[in-house]
């Protein structure tokens, strides 16, 4: 049966394959190109005369004696102290993921099991909160944070990102908990558990697939954030993304664009690994809201 469905004319096949190929190149080539170019000197990566210079590393050969150079990476990580930003990013991301999952599982579980009208209103409210552009919220924080001397510290940015993350986390975990049969925790409660004990001993052991998927998206939100980290963190506490943005201003004038290129590649690498290992979870998380709801 499926053979008949999938038999196509050769012309259609060529069109389809061509389309997919164009998309693959558009999606993948920029990353490949930047990764390759990050090991060259600026004269090669930004070569007006001939783009093949970047492939063979003509100027890199002349300037450094080899076809590849780690100068950009050395400049970014050591000279410009990108490692501090990387450290800050890991602190922020790990804290945001742990805190928002803790709050989110408790809240999401309650929303899934409540069945009352107000639980639904809370979900609607969360939807409204999710839609708020982050920069409008940030403009509400700045003045009070300045006044109370909360501005510039990592914990401030962490708790703000946890809060911004909550609506999404609640929605996602709520729909995961809906898929866990009610009988499970209710039978535990019949056996004499309190609600929290039932949650702790019956639900927690089976909730991990949903928590991992939600955690991935919390991770991405915290890792990819520019708005909050760029405006709420002081220079010393900057994370990777605002650090890269600040490179743009300084390195362009100093002729050190390659530092920024190396930093960009360094910051992309963890995401690459993340997709490599969690592709299935990411795809299922993206479609969870759409296909079910």
């Amino acid at each position: 049966m499926s053979d008949i469905v999938h038999r196509r004319s050769p012309v259609l096949n060529i069109i389809i394959w061509g389309l997919v190929l164009v998309w693959i190149v558009a999606a993948g080539f920029p990353f490949l190109w930047t990764l390759w170019g990050s090991f060259k000197v600026q004269g090669d990566f930004f070569s007006k005369a001939d783009w093949t210079n970047a492939v063979y590393g003509v100027r890199t050969q002349i300037e450094t004696g080899g076809a590849f150079t780690g100068k950009g990476y050395y400049g970014a990580w050591v000279t410009k102290e990108f490692w501090i930003a990387a450290l800050n990013t890991s602190i922020v991301v790990v804290s945001v993921v742990i805190i928002s999952l803790t709050l989110g599982t408790l809240g999401g579980y309650a929303l899934a099991r409540s069945g009352k009208k107000y639980a639904f209103y809370l979900l609607m409210l969360a939807l409204v909160f999710r839609a708020m552009p982050h920069i409008t919220l940030v403009s509400g924080y700045l003045l009070p944070f300045f006044e109370w001397n909360l501005w510039g510290h990592l914990p401030t940015a962490i708790i703000v990102m946890v809060a911004i993350n909550q609506p999404f986390t609640l929605w996602m975990l709520h729909s995961f908990f809906l898929n866990i049969p009610k009988d499970l925790d209710e039978s535990a409660m019949v056996d004499g558990c309190t609600r929290f004990q039932a949650f702790r001993h019956v639900i927690v052991p089976v909730m991990w697939p949903g928590v991992v998927t939600t955690g991935l998206f919390s991770f991405l939100l915290a890792y990819n954030d520019f708005t909050v980290t760029a405006t709420l963190l002081s220079q010393a506490n900057q994370t990777m993304v605002p650090k890269i943005a600040s490179f743009l201003g300084t390195t362009q004038t100093e002729g050190n664009v390659m530092f920024a290129v190396a930093a960009v590649v360094s910051a992309t690498a963890p995401l690459f690994v993340l997709i490599l290992f969690f592709q299935r979870q990411i795809v299922s998380g993206l479609t969870a809201g759409a296909v079910k709801g």
Binding site: T136, G140, Y141, V160, A163, I164, Q166
Partner: peptide, 9 residues
Amino acid sequence: FIALPIVSV
């Protein structure tokens, strides 16, 4: 961190 900032804004 979401409702109050909107008021503050």
